[in-house]
Design a protein around this nucleic acid. Structure first.
Length: 404
DNA sequence: CCTCCACAGGAAGCGCAGGAGT
DNA sequence: ACTCCTGCGCTTCCTGTGGAGG
């Protein structure tokens, strides 16, 4: 088929969406339901900056998809707008620490935001620090948002430096907002870092099913064409997400995928059937993603398990019935051994193989039970958690990629 | 009952990479 | 630039468990 005709076909294709961006994680809605309290709290604290004072540092904790980032971005955005209109020097810089995972990289990101035309890569840490001081020293109130703050390796240093800035500049200030979904990480910090970062601590609770369905209802009104999405599809998405995590992102992702499935099948409506299909698809995506991040040897173990699952009928118990897809630990190791012998690093020892197996179980990729009575000796019975063919394909593709 | 088999899982230690100290 | 240290992935060794078979 000619490219042109593909474009034409895609272009004229009927779609259930008005604006699918409304359902993606990057989108920040104007209204953030059920977060009024948190918005007020943060606004009150940050309001100090428009009076020319330093705001307290804030530490925000909550599981993923509870609106931490959205609330923070929204509040700071409004702060900037307000300050801009009144000509008050307030600046906000947002840093996702996953991409800027050290003090040095975070500082670079800060100065780059303030001096966009200059390039600072390669300059010494102290020089960059001076640049931050220079900028804040012009009677500026800086707010530094550190999202996924637990990803920073030398966080103690970074917090210390940013705080020290407040002593060295007279008319400006530097305030920090730290965001994390990992609560235990702050116990590893130095006490003074902790007390400084946590001047105000806030917890964002997960949404319940009712809240979730209201949230996604609101968004789906703008994301989809009118009367396309059935009410039951909304409540099902909310129920699934609430049950799993209370995570708004999951709920929206389900609805987005459900819409895409409807488009693919040229359906005019999104019903709970599409949501169920979407759930399966999202789950598969997560699993395949998980597999691709597994260490190579562990992938081989998993490959051995899926190979045998496809070949064998199962094992027989003493009572005579066959256990579908269940494998002995020993035979899996033999299969793994022969696969691994063909790869550049040989197989690991049986001891370590057992560790791999129990790890795979922790990830939920396989199920294991102790053989207990009915079998020779004591062994682990292994069963694959998902479709063997799909897992096999995924791993084999992964291995080919690594060779290339 | 004893021994062998087939495995589970703890303890110790080894080699290595990467960060800290100097 | 050098050593020193430490965590990590892994092997080796070992003790324990429980059915199978003599």
């Amino acid at each position: 088929m000619l490219a042109e005709s593909i474009f034409e076909k895609e272009f004229s294709k009927e779609t259930v969406f008005l604006d699918r961006n409304m359902l993606t994680p990057h989108f920040i809605p104007r209204e953030l339901p059920f977060r009024q309290k948190q918005i007020e709290e943060i606004s009150t604290i940050l309001a100090q900056t428009i009076k020319g004072k330093k705001a307290d540092n804030i530490f925000i904790y909550g599981k993923s998809g509870t609106g931490k980032t959205s609330v923070t971005k929204k509040v700071t955005q409004e702060l900037i707008e307000f300050a801009g209109a009144k000509n008050i020097p307030v600046e906000v810089t947002y840093i996702n620490c996953r991409n800027h995972s050290s003090k040095y990289r975070a500082l670079i990101k800060i100065v780059k935001d303030f001096f966009p035309e200059e390039n600072f890569l390669g300059f010494s840490a102290s020089f960059i620090y001076e640049k931050v001081l220079e900028f804040a020293g012009k009677k500026k109130q800086l707010i530094v948002v550190l999202d996924e703050v637990d990803k920073i390796k030398d966080l103690d240093d970074l917090i210390y430096s940013l705080n020290r800035a407040n002593d060295e500049i007279v008319n400006g200030s530097v305030s920090i907002i730290g965001i994390s979904n990992n609560l235990v990480f702050k116990d590893r910090l130095e006490p003074r870092t902790k007390s400084s970062l946590c001047q105000h601590e806030m917890v964002f609770p997960p949404y319940n099913a009712k809240e979730l369905s209201e949230i996604i209802l609101q968004r789906s009104k703008k994301a989809f064409k009118e009367n396309v999405v059935h009410e039951s599809a909304i409540s099902l998405s909310a129920a699934i997400a609430a049950q799993e995590s209370g995570d708004a992102r999951t709920a929206l992702m389900l609805l987005l995928r459900a819409g895409e499935i409807a488009d693919q099948r040229s359906l005019e409506h999104v019903t709970d059937q599409e949501v169920r299909r979407a759930k399966k698809k999202v789950e598969e995506e997560i699993i395949l993603n998980m597999i691709s991040t597994l260490p190579e040897q562990q992938q081989l173990v998993l490959l051995a398990i899926s190979n045998l699952s496809l070949q064998k009928q199962g094992i027989k118990t003493l009572t005579g019935k066959t256990e579908e897809g269940t494998l002995f630990s020993g035979e899996v190791y033999k299969e793994y051994e022969s696969i691994a012998n063909q790869s550049k690093n040989g197989p690991v020892s049986t001891r370590w193989y057992r560790e791999y197996v129990s790890e795979l179980e922790m990830y939920g990729l396989i199920f294991t039970t102790n053989s207990g009575k009915g079998f020779k000796g004591q062994s682990t019975l292994i069963k694959l958690g998902f479709d063997a063919k799909k897992i096999k394909d995924a791993i084999e593709k992964e291995i080919v990629d690594e060779m290339a």
